[in-house]
């Protein structure tokens, strides 16, 4: 099947079997190997990409279903020499050990920040109608879809907290 995907601001044409997941399309057909295949079942978050600014698991999506969408991968957030604030903060805070989950962690953190900007509550928010707190408790809950087998969680949380102002995080109590 011929499809056109809009990835990191660029239209890319490809000819794929309908079974191809968005993750496999990115990695195997478009050579965007930043998004990682961990579990391939939506449990680890290593494949996290943004679709129309919302984070999703690329392994549980069919590429053919995302023709009209804006897809952003880790490569679209920053590049060597021009790292995004989150990428820089992960380096600075040792937010990884082996690094395999890192692209997913960073894309997920970026998506999480836009959810904060919309004022979305989480399972640990005391008041569903209040502006959410940008607290460690909130970050941990909201990042629970990204596993790190090296358990670099303290560094991951510190990097996210540190990068938030530069990433333009707005709608939180901490940023007021």
């Amino acid at each position: 099947m011929k499809v056109t995907l809009n990835v990191n601001g660029e239209g890319r044409e490809l000819d794929i079997d309908p079974r191809t997941t968005l993750l496999d399309a990115l990695r195997n057909h478009l050579d965007l190997t930043g998004s990682k295949k961990g579990c391939d079942h939506g449990q680890c978050g290593a494949c996290t990409v943004l679709v129309n600014d919302r984070r999703i698991n690329a392994c549980l999506a069919l590429a053919v279903m995302h023709e009209d969408d804006e897809i952003t991968t880790i490569e679209g957030l920053g590049q060597p020499g021009a790292l995004s604030p989150l990428q820089r903060a992960f380096v600075q805070h040792d937010g990884y050990q082996c690094g395999y989950c890192t692209p997913g962690q960073i894309v997920s953190a970026k998506g999480m920040m836009s959810e904060f900007d919309l004022g979305w509550p989480s399972n640990v928010s005391d008041d569903l109608t209040a502006i959410p707190d940008f607290s460690r408790t909130e970050i941990r809950e909201r990042m629970s879809g990204n596993l790190c087998r090296c358990s670099a969680y303290p560094g991951i949380c510190a990097a996210i907290e540190d990068a938030a102002p530069e990433e333009g995080l707005k709608n939180t109590k901490a940023a007021e």
């Binding site: 998506g111 999480m112 928010s125 909201r142």
Partner: peptide, 14 residues
């Protein structure tokens, strides 16, 4: 509350 108690941010978005 029930929705937020289920799955993950990524899954709930899809």
């Amino acid at each position: 509350r029930a929705l937020l108690a289920g799955a993950t941010g990524q899954l709930r978005n899809k």
